[in-house]
Amino acid sequence: MLLTLINGMTLAALLFIIAVGFNLSFSLLRVANLAHGAFYLFGGYIGLSMLNHLGSWWLALVIGGLCTAFLAFITEFFLLRKVRGDNLRETLVTLSVAIIVADLMIVVWGGNPKSIPYPEVLNGFVQLFNVTIPKYSVFILATSILIGLLIWLLLNKTKMGMVIRAGVDHFEMVSVLGTNIQRVFTGMFVLAGFLAGLAGVIGGSYLMMSPGEDWRILTYALLIIILGGMGSFGGSVVAAFIIGLIYSFGSVHVPEFQLFLMFTPVALVLIFRPKGLFGRGLA
């Protein structure tokens, strides 16, 4: 029971890192980045190779994130900019990027499930209020809280965040007021890619990495942003916890309908509150 709860929280924290970048880039660019799952897996695989070459998990974490950020930069700068303005075409471009990257990953890293070994420091357990918790879970939770805090500070306490929040509501107006909105778009997309890569290395240690995992992660991220509301930071937090907990409790108690159960709250939200739990609805 308690272990299931902790597992659920850990997964929720991981999903939050993935979904928050997705959500922000989606609400700003209005592009549902269907390559986000592929970015996640790409980061994980890069992390694995880096770990094998350099031997340091922490270095692998950073490099995995940076390489994915670079991939996101290429996607945004060279492909998405060509079709800017037509949201559907932009989304289809990300879909084809997802397919190409997914297939390239099979070529490079093969089709067998792989996993990144934990660093030495994070092996083992800690005692917290008479409860034994894997160190790794604590690490993931702490990381996601840190990332969440940093993003919250970025959004609410900096000039940049002001531009981003304004851009979510009305990017044309922001552009008229003299901000280079294209650069903000690129920055946000790259940030989302970086977070996806980071989550890929962390998730690659916590879960398995195999072809198909990219679509699974993408689906969870989509579930979270639809449940929490597009463009809502708080919504992503709450929705990530709902989805993570349903996932872990479902896999213990009703394994045959676990995925189905994850979709149910989303379906209910869509019927009764189409904007999502905390969404304001985007035009």
């Binding site: 492909l79 075409r89 289809l92 471009v93 397919i99 190409i100 297939d103």
Partner: peptide, 12 residues
Amino acid sequence: LIIIGTMFLLVI
């Protein structure tokens, strides 16, 4: 799929 994906990208 790499080839098909690239073709699709060009068409889009």
